[in-house]
Amino acid sequence: MTDTTSAVGTTVVQRWRTLRWVLLALVLVVGVSAVSAYLTAPRQGGRMNPDATSPDGAHALVSLLRDRGVDVVATKDLAGVEQAARPDSLLLVAPTPYLIDDAALDRLEDLPGDVLLVEPSSWTREALAPGIRMAADTSFGGEPRCDVGEAVRAGRVQLNLSDTYESVDGGPAVTRCYDGALVRYTERGRTVTAVGTADFMTNAGLLQEGNAALAMNLAGARPRVIWYTPARIAGESDGATSIMDLIPDRVGWIALQLCLAVALVALWKGRRIGPLVAEDLPVVVRASETVEGRGRLYRSRRARDRAASALRTSVLQRTLPRLGLGGQSDPASVVETVARRIRYDPATVEYALFGPDPTDDAQLVTLSRLLDDIERQVATS
């Protein structure tokens, strides 16, 4: 009884040692797959979102700016903007439908530093850039045709369909670039720049013409850029709902039951994993016996055509690379090359490589000898 118990205990220990490595490998595979999927998955977000890797996001531009040494402060709330603002900073206001609160716009107006409005709404433009107004025409980019340094260095760009701006009556002097798609003026010591489209600053738009240069010149004009992308109307409660809040309570119990079922199946299958069993290797068959057996099979079926085709195909596969020819070479080129290489009659070479099938065993033997002679002379020539 003791020996039986000891044997059972030893078997259980051996199976557990094998099973734990299987479980560890499974955990590693799942972990690596999950991390790879997370790192390579596109980060979704709103238009010009600094963390979004989708085509309309701005992750690429933010990464380029940070590599260039620009301090990019990405924030979604007004308090973060006020905390990061300083005289040498640039406030970049991304396209958003949430910036409509007059009190929030007044607070942004009082902040120090320059302002860059990207595809601004009417509320944002009237509050933060009162010196400009919408123009009647539209622009698609082209040459800058102005003296703004950032635009001159970028040169020709592709803005797609862009709003254009012009100076208000009695307002400050406004410099218009790209037919009004990019405007700039200075008032009360602050430089205000407005761009009628955000396409050239997105991940997809940076690849066109001089878009990347213009985007980096505008956004990297100051040591610090405050990237403001409001996620809600200022003054409203956050009300953010995580994905866990959207999942019903029963889903957790279902997931737990699935995990338990998977664990039980793993244990059930793991019990079948035993020690390695030594087995004799299969019988080794020599290549000559295989060739003889195949030849007897062809002979028994009188398949001289297949035998001749197999011989010719093998010779061509071994000979063509030596001649610098490919598998798609036409027969005429092959015959001419072989005949010139070994100084053979072209008609004999054509018969050997591409001629008719032999009608009896004697012709098949003659053909095989001729093919062997041609291959040997090509190899030694």
Rank of each mutant, 00 (worst) to 15 (best):
T124P: 02
T5Y: 01
L276S: 10
P223I: 00
T4E: 10
C259W: 08
A127W: 09
L24Q: 07
S63C: 02
S122H: 15
D56T: 13
R68A: 15
V12T: 12
T241G: 09
P42S: 05
A310Q: 13
V338K: 05
R299G: 09
L23M: 08
V334N: 06
A151P: 03
N211Y: 00
V118Y: 04
E279F: 10
P87F: 06
G326T: 15
D77E: 03
G189D: 02
R271D: 07
T96M: 00
D56C: 07
D77R: 01
T10V: 13
A104N: 08
V73C: 09
V29P: 02
A94S: 10
V8A: 15
A181F: 02
F354C: 10
S122V: 12
V152Y: 06
T175L: 13
D163L: 06
S36T: 15
P248N: 01
R184T: 15
L206R: 07
S122Y: 02
L105C: 06
T4D: 09
A194D: 04
V81I: 14
G293P: 07
W268P: 10
V183F: 03
V365G: 05
L161I: 03
A332N: 10
G131D: 13
E289N: 14
L367V: 07
T319N: 01
V168L: 06
L24G: 13
R343Q: 15
R153H: 11
T313A: 12
A104F: 00
D106E: 05
R296W: 01
A278W: 14
L159R: 05
V35R: 11
G45F: 04
E336N: 03
P172H: 07
V12Y: 13
G355K: 08
T11G: 03
Y351N: 11
A231T: 12
R286K: 03
A307P: 05
R250W: 07
V27S: 07
V35A: 15
